[in-house]
């Protein structure tokens, strides 16, 4: 006779066994009666495997990581494990490892490829412009084309200045 399965969330014996397919991956969850009730597993609409996974998986990671509290908002990893939610946008920096480990099971990919807010886009295009110019500068220096290099240096300076001015003006 096989060993009785333990509940994924507590120490009790599991009596509810679930299989759900998310993004073509099979996930098995074993729960005791009371955890199943609490997680709303009995109500198929209220039940989200993603929430459940957030609860059980972050526990494993907690032991081998030291950052347990968000310095910005005071939210703890324990809070995250309990609610499946974060405290503030900065929490994603501080609990990044925990969150990233869940994303693969939760989503189609782990990198955003949709809309980008205008202010971020402007910032990005500035950075892209600077790094392009820096590359040109490097090439020019290597080829000992110093006149050209000086030109690129001036251009970089100009882009930086115009950004600083824009930031001061509140944009």
């Amino acid at each position: 006779m096989g060993k009785a399965l333990k509940c994924d969330l507590c120490e009790n014996q599991a009596t509810v066994h679930l299989t759900q397919i998310l993004n073509n991956k099979v996930h098995k969850v074993d729960l005791c009666e009371s955890c199943a009730q609490e997680k709303g597993v009995t109500d198929p609409n209220g039940f989200s495997l993603a929430d459940l996974l957030a609860g059980s998986m972050s526990e494993e990671i907690e032991t081998n990581s030291n950052d347990t509290i968000c310095p910005i908002c005071g939210y703890t990893r324990k809070d995250f494990r309990k609610t499946g939610r974060l405290g503030c946008p900065e929490c994603y920096e501080h609990f990044g490892q925990t969150v990233r480990s869940l994303l693969d099971n939760m989503h189609k990919g782990t990198r955003h490829c949709g809309k980008i807010p205008t202010h971020v886009q402007e910032h990005l295009s500035y950075r892209e412009e600077v790094s392009r110019l820096e590359e040109e500068l490097q090439k020019a220096v290597e080829a000992e084309r110093y006149e050209e290099a000086a030109e690129f240096r001036d251009q970089i300076e100009e882009v930086r200045k115009s950004r600083d001015k824009a930031e001061k003006d509140g944009r």
């Binding site: 989200s48 993603a50 929430d51 957030a54 499946g84 939610r85 974060l86 946008p89 994603y92 969150v99 869940l102 994303l103 939760m106 989503h107 990198r111 955003h112 490829c113 949709g114 809309k115 980008i116 807010p117 205008t118 202010h119 971020v120 990005l124």
Partner: peptide
């Protein structure tokens, strides 16, 4: 968005209270 700066990361997209809504938040 022009009036209220959103929480956004290049990697994770729009940052949401629950990780199940990350990315597009849509």
């Amino acid at each position: 968005e022009a009036k209220l700066p959103y929480a956004f990361s290049r990697e994770l997209g729009y940052l949401t209270a629950c990780p199940t809504n990350l990315g597009t938040g849509m």
